[in-house]
Design a protein around this nucleic acid. Sequence first.
RNA 1: AGUUCAGGCUGGGCAAUUGCUCACCCAAGAAGAUUGGGAGAGAGGAAAGUCCGAACUUCAUAGAACAAGGUGCCGGAUAACGUCCGGGGUCCCGAUUUUAUCGGGAUACGGAAAGUGCCACAGAAAAUAUACCGUCCCGGUUUUAUCGGGAUAAGGGUGAAAUGGCAGGGUAAGAGCCUACCGCGGAAAUGGUAACAUUUCCGGCAGGGCAAACCCCACCUGAAGCAAGGUCAAAUAAAGAAGCCUUUCCCUUAAUUGGGAUCGAGGUUGUUCGCUUUGAAUGUUCCGAUUAUCGGGACAGGGCUUCCGGGUAGACUGCAUAAAUCACGAAGUAAUUCGUGAUCAAGAUAAAUAAUUGCCGCCCCGAUUAAAUCGGGGAACAGAAUUCGGCUUAUAAGCCUGAACUAUUG
RNA 2: GCGAGCGUAACUCAGUUGGUAGAGUGUCAGCUUCCCAAGCUGAAUGCCGCGGGUUCGAGCCCCGUCGCUCGCU
Length: 132
Amino acid sequence: MKNFSLSSKERIKKRKDFEIIYSAGSIVYSSGKTIKAIYNYKITNIDANIKIAAVVGKRQGCAVWRNRVKRLIKESYRLNKEMLLLECLEKKLEMKIVFSSPLYTEKKNKNLELIDFMPGIIETMLIIRKKL
RNA sequence: AGUUCAGGCUGGGCAAUUGCUCACCCAAGAAGAUUGGGAGAGAGGAAAGUCCGAACUUCAUAGAACAAGGUGCCGGAUAACGUCCGGGGUCCCGAUUUUAUCGGGAUACGGAAAGUGCCACAGAAAAUAUACCGUCCCGGUUUUAUCGGGAUAAGGGUGAAAUGGCAGGGUAAGAGCCUACCGCGGAAAUGGUAACAUUUCCGGCAGGGCAAACCCCACCUGAAGCAAGGUCAAAUAAAGAAGCCUUUCCCUUAAUUGGGAUCGAGGUUGUUCGCUUUGAAUGUUCCGAUUAUCGGGACAGGGCUUCCGGGUAGACUGCAUAAAUCACGAAGUAAUUCGUGAUCAAGAUAAAUAAUUGCCGCCCCGAUUAAAUCGGGGAACAGAAUUCGGCUUAUAAGCCUGAACUAUUG
RNA sequence: GCGAGCGUAACUCAGUUGGUAGAGUGUCAGCUUCCCAAGCUGAAUGCCGCGGGUUCGAGCCCCGUCGCUCGCU
């Protein structure tokens, strides 16, 4: 498996998965609460993998802005996913994470860059790794 | 040259690395699962709002009318439209010049003599006219003011709007009462496909505004929408059909309830033992043997397996060759149409089209300044979701055309 | 994607043949009371979401637009 890819297998696509995560997941915030992560995992023998999704609320901005936020979250996970993936492969976990950034809105933060998301994502991933 | 207004066009480019989506080829593979490699394609002028019109799909439907909704000068374009093009009327602005012409702009612009309704306040009166102040005549009282009767609609005042305008005649004062011009209504002729325009004749004037008030007239519309519709179809529960099974004993219960033993079946193991999991429920009736009971059949109930229909989750399809785009030519004032040639150019579904960097181009600021160079900053509105034709709204910067104004030069 | 509804005072809402925009709560002032509450009296507060149009006149009629809410798998 490649180190920096993010194929369709590594994204949450089914409605049921989201229902499971929101009902039984646990929540982790980064410092400053810029990034919120909800995660859920179980032990399997077959598919040890991580699946993620990025979620932006409808009221936070228009469609272009929402797409950009999701792309930036995915990008910053993609570049740093190795630190969680090895851990999960060793312990044979099927991990599912939902990232969101509830504090950003289009009116306040018009032009967002990758730097605005990268540290928060890394921080939450480190917290999740500790709790395993 | 600048500013403003109106209309139209463009909506940065190239490269590298790491990724995403789609379909194609090659290799691995039982496999159209999956993995690796290769070469290819991958948002807009509004993709937006969902305001109109269609295609397409399902349902309904003999035909006609009504209801409800929409459109509304005339002609053309179109698959269709509330869209577009051309023309006419009305209104506004500017110029010339003077009451017409030219240029630009706006226009929901059918009917008020089919009927109903409304027009606050003010005003005499707001729609069958009327008579507050006036003006004029007659009479009385009284003595220069007032009262009564009549004539009048010129003037005043109110209002958004007051019953044709203006000039002359006429009169007691007035009045389309009469005349000319203008306006209005009707008829005819001419021009135009038509809206309409021009001319002539007739009528002394009928007539207020509002139909984005009800309404009348003409024309149009069946309803819902790709979350339409179609195909395949897991698990679970339940209905139907077929096949097989429904051992024995004891305790208990209201019970087809609960429990134990035996026995059967499955798992573990090469096999046995062992261990472990699991097992239903009988009742009625007939026949035969025998008379305590046993064997067999039928019906009802129960269990297991298989099949069948329905269609949920989910998957596939609808879904990318179309009223398509571009170029040239022809017809037409134009919208647009016709012909020939070329192209095929996104197809996601918790939803791809990205991130980072470099160079060039554009704009702004600063420095040096002859051009130019160096440094810093900036680049809008906004993201396909079945597909087209429009409309509306958002939009940095730049370009083109036309009009008006200003300044400078000749 | 499709379809409905609502924007009026600080808050909750009325407002219909189109004619000077209202109620309740709250705020402020006065009266009452030894003081407060309650009560009584009075006052202030509105670009009727925004922009056009029709009309003499628009919160109301028409068109466009912005924001909010709800329904359909």
